[in-house]
Computed example of a mutant assay.
Amino acid sequence: MTAAKLHIVHTEASLGWGGQEIRILTEAAGMIQRGHQVTLLCPPQARIYSEAQSRGLPVVALPIGRKNLRGVLALRRWLKTHAVDVINTHSSTDAWLAALAMKSLGKRVPIVRTRHISAPIPHNPATRWLYQRASHHIVTTGERLREQLIGINRFSPTAITSVPTGVDTAHFVPGDKAAVRQQLGLPLDAPIVGIVATLRSWKGHRYLVEAFAALPDTTRLLIVGDGPVKEALLAQIAQLGIADRVVLPGNQRDVLPWLQAMDVFALPSYANEGVPQAILQAMLCGLPIISTPVGSILEAVEHERTGLIVEPQNSAELQHAIQRLLGDADLRQKLGSAARERALARFGFEAMVERMEGIFRNVTENV
């Protein structure tokens, strides 16, 4: 018997752009490919709204960017007039708005709450109601995030599943380094250390810049992305006198060639991580990784096997790790090959979509 198709509604209040928003869109596209109906609800000024439109994904603009009565009523009106099988919330604001809208309607539509980051969750009765009663299941993007909710918040383990973000293993592959560097206008012979991440404080760019400043003048730093700390980073780079050695191409719709141009990938985050998509993309490109034991990063990066793990906010340790990899081509090759094998085995896109589909079906059948 053919399984019933679902109408899956994603809500996202965030106006920003990063791995969380990219996962929503890629997951939505995967569900549509499997025959499900998917609708994204988000504020009209959110970056994800225009991105969904450009990708041909169904999206509806609603004023849900803030926790207020207007947002609750807007969601309530939309949900009252549309047949929905499951709601997948993604940020704190839309999770609260969706929970309150559904409670006011009295409809038994299950809510799945996806937790993308490792930021602590408050200990209070209202938050416990949101996660344990209003939400029918919690999805985390890493096992350590799941353990955090069980061990610290005392949430029921049977209602929490870790589903790491899946990456397109056919797209992210090693490439011809010389060819892509020529294409991008990057030096052919210089050692290149790179990062792909939204320019947010907790991604650790400032520590990477500090570490890089002490490296030989022949090295280059590639910072792909944009975000709120850009001006601060530019000021830091100027103050250190390394502007001629740092390339900042901004946001890129396709980061593949930029990854293929790198010798080493570094993401020195110090907070708020699940399993970052950029790390998985870099691993699939066969790059050795330098990162930190934050969030669920250790589920992807194993010290001395698929990369090097350094202490968060420690520029000296980060500098040493970069120097070690740049000075040892055999080690780069060994770690990069192992990283690609691990990403292929554990973090494929189809596995993520299949597991999420299973969760959606389970909650709709048991609501």
Rank of each mutant, 00 (worst) to 15 (best):
D244S: 15
Q45T: 11
K67R: 13
G286V: 07
E365M: 11
G307Y: 07
L15M: 08
L97Y: 09
A339D: 05
L6E: 06
R47D: 01
A3I: 15
L69F: 12
A261R: 07
A52D: 10
V247C: 11
S315M: 06
T169G: 01
E354D: 14
E350W: 01
G274W: 01
G151D: 12
H10P: 01
N314G: 01
L130E: 13
F172V: 06
V84A: 12
I297A: 07
S91V: 02
D263L: 05
E21R: 00
S92Q: 03
D263S: 12
Q132R: 13
T81M: 03
A351T: 14
R55K: 14
A29H: 04
V139Y: 01
R113E: 01
I87M: 13
G106N: 12
D85I: 08
R245A: 11
T292N: 03
A126T: 10
N68K: 09
Q333H: 14
R47L: 12
D168P: 05
F360S: 03
L73M: 14
S91R: 09
Q281E: 15
G65D: 09
K107A: 13
G227H: 03
I289F: 09
E21W: 05
L130G: 09
I195Y: 07
F360T: 01
E231V: 11
T2H: 08
Q132E: 15
F349M: 09
A271V: 00
K80Q: 14
L215K: 08
P63L: 13
E302Y: 04
L130K: 03
T26C: 00
R70N: 10
Q281L: 02
P44I: 05
V255K: 02
A99L: 02
Q45D: 15
L234Y: 06
A98S: 15
V275K: 01
A339W: 00
L57S: 07
L6V: 04
R128C: 00
T89C: 12
G65E: 14
L130M: 13
A243G: 02
L325H: 02
V72M: 04
I297T: 12
E273N: 02
A134T: 04
V224P: 05
L97P: 08
I117S: 11
A339I: 01
R324G: 02
W78H: 15
R200K: 14
I32Y: 00
T158V: 11
I87A: 05
H7E: 02
T306F: 06
V193R: 04
Q313R: 15
F172A: 06
R206F: 08
P191V: 11
E147I: 01
A178D: 08
G358F: 02
S91T: 15
A178Y: 01
A197H: 03
Q323L: 10
N124Y: 03
L15A: 03
Q148G: 00
V301L: 06
E317R: 12
G250N: 10
S296R: 06
Q323E: 15
D85A: 08
R113F: 07
E357R: 03
L284D: 10
L149W: 05
A345S: 14
Q333A: 14
S291L: 08
A74P: 05
R128Q: 13
F349A: 05
